[in-house]
Write a protein that binds this DNA or RNA. Structure first.
Lengths: 170, 170
DNA sequence: TATTGACAGTTCTAAAATAGAACTTATGGT
DNA sequence: ACCATAAGTTCTATTTTAGAACTGTCAATA
């Protein structure tokens, strides 16, 4: 499967992975949320090669996650800021950070702590149901095909069954 | 920067990206949450090359996200199931799916719908503060260095300031 | 006027990762 | 003996990435 084919998959996870599913994009976005905006600042704080950084910024702009804003004329210079679409990535970033906090920290403890300005306390992010507010876990969720589902979706039939059926058909 | 160096970074996001930050790992994990467990089933439903699949499964086992369980002797065969550490990735998966649902679906609509068995309704995942229960947004969160922070962390000083200081020091 | 420095990239080569297909091993069934 | 199932491994060609050097604009300085 080619990289670009991911964007076309009838799967919201695959399409999002097309945007953020590489070594650098999430790290670049982390910097964006920490108010880094300029090329050399990204490069200095991440240690990414300039080539790849240019490529990834271009990709994130193309996907509408970042926007280039001029901050000086002569020579024309731009900085990269998060769009609303980019800001909406915050729950993804936070859930990733939280999993790392729980499962990947060494003996020294967490690199960062998060304070919720609204309530003034140090917090962890919790994912809840939009309808009843209860914390979510995989076993309490049932998946249904939606309007954009493909026929013979992996959701409807196990891969084993699909393999068998394909063999029968072909 | 080498791939393996990510695991050592004093950043929970970077360390998690070392586990899930590639083209395939998240897609493999999606299948795991959809009850796919066996090598050929992963391969058939994802279209990943067998080589890469073997490599990624090995990596996910090494990180303790999946566990190999024998399901038959003679010949000895294993299936891959999520550990608790792997199950804890659920909020990451769901936040990614949700962002894709909001920002990446085409005219046909969502490929999948999620029902919360607890309350019986179709829902979206919402990320809230563990302390006050309010939905989270980036601008209401303040970041502090934790015990595992590195000195001169990117969080304490902007990259621009760090560059200047480095130039002064060196 | 020539030089230096800041900034945002682009270009180059070598190394590493990935795609795609074929092959291997172990076993059970016909 | 032959085929099928399952879980990989091995191979070559292509693509991506790492790392360093280079380019182009402009402002400030010597």
């Amino acid at each position: 499967m080619k990289w670009d084919a991911l964007e076309e998959e009838p799967c919201s996870l695959a399409r999002t992975v097309a945007v953020i599913g590489d070594r650098w994009s999430l790290l670049i976005l982390r910097e964006c949320f920490l108010r880094i905006r300029r090329f050399d600042d990204f490069q200095a704080s991440l240690g990414i090669t300039r080539h790849l950084l240019a490529d990834r910024l271009k990709k994130l702009v193309r996907f509408g996650v970042l926007r280039k804003i001029p901050y000086q004329e002569a020579p024309k210079r731009y900085e990269y800021i998060l769009t609303q679409k980019g800001l909406d990535l915050y729950p993804i970033i936070m859930s990733i950070v939280h999993w790392g906090n729980v499962h990947m920290v060494d003996a020294r403890g967490r690199p960062l702590l998060h304070e919720h300005k609204t309530c003034g306390k140090m917090f962890d992010p919790v994912m809840v149901c939009s309808e009843c507010g209860a914390p979510l876990s995989a076993k309490h969720v049932h998946v249904h095909p939606g309007p954009g589902a493909r026929k013979s979706s992996p959701v409807h039939a196990s891969a084993r069954e699909r393999t068998k059926r394909t063999a029968e058909q072909g």
